[in-house]
């Protein structure tokens, strides 16, 4: 398992003993991290920033309230991500805020430029990849975010989402397959698939 930095470990222990300065240091590091995670979780929703902000705030409060319940500081990462995922899901449920997911099969692709700026094309296909990402089922997309952007190990993902490691791996496998096939359907040239 990817170990948390030693100073973070120390902060957690000190915070659990009631050291508010340590808790503050922990929050200063993790509040932006959770915000970034939530921002990716909510994808390209028009209100993703506001929602991510709310999740970061609520997660920070939960961290303060429940710090004492974390038995093993080494499991801090899955613990805090679990809190964040719960808040993300709860926010979606609370407001019934799920926007229509992107149907990758029906995205209108602009005609490929015969000649053109390669960089612009790469950016174009990159943005399509993000659209394809937003079209993934929620449970697969969450695993991709945790693995690719947050760098969690499979064990941490499993602990965060309370699933088995093999389930986490399977979800990621199907997500990557989905993305690969989507790019094929869209005829993204291999050399432009970055």
């Amino acid at each position: 398992m990817a170990a948390i930095p030693e100073h973070t470990h120390l902060w957690i222990e000190e915070a659990q003993r009631g050291d508010t300065a340590a808790l503050e240091r922990l929050l200063r590091v993790w509040h932006p991290k959770i915000y970034q995670f939530a921002l990716k979780y909510f994808g390209r929703r028009s209100d993703s920033r506001e929602m991510a902000q709310e999740v970061a705030q609520e997660s920070a409060l939960s961290l303060c309230r429940n710090m004492a319940t974390l038995r093993d500081p080494a499991k801090f990462r899955p613990w805090i991500y679990q809190i964040a995922v719960n808040h993300c899901n709860s926010l979606l449920r609370k407001g019934q805020k799920s926007e229509a997911s992107v149907d990758v099969e029906h995205i209108q692709l602009p005609a490929t430029q015969a000649s053109g700026d390669e960089l612009a094309q790469q950016q174009h296909w990159g943005s399509l990849l993000q659209k394809a990402m937003n079209g993934l089922p929620e449970n697969q997309r969450t695993v991709v975010i945790m693995k690719e952007y947050e760098g969690l190990t499979f064990r941490e993902i499993a602990e965060t989402l309370q699933i088995s490691e093999n389930t986490a791996k399977s979800r990621l496998y199907y997500a990557l397959e989905h993305l690969r096939r989507t790019l094929e359907v869209w005829n993204v040239p291999n050399d432009l698939r970055i």
Partner: peptide
């Protein structure tokens, strides 16, 4: 192909 997808995801991070 998966490696290309991964690379694309990282470079085109939201």
């Amino acid at each position: 192909a998966w490696e290309r997808v991964r690379s694309g995801l990282r470079e085109q991070a939201p």
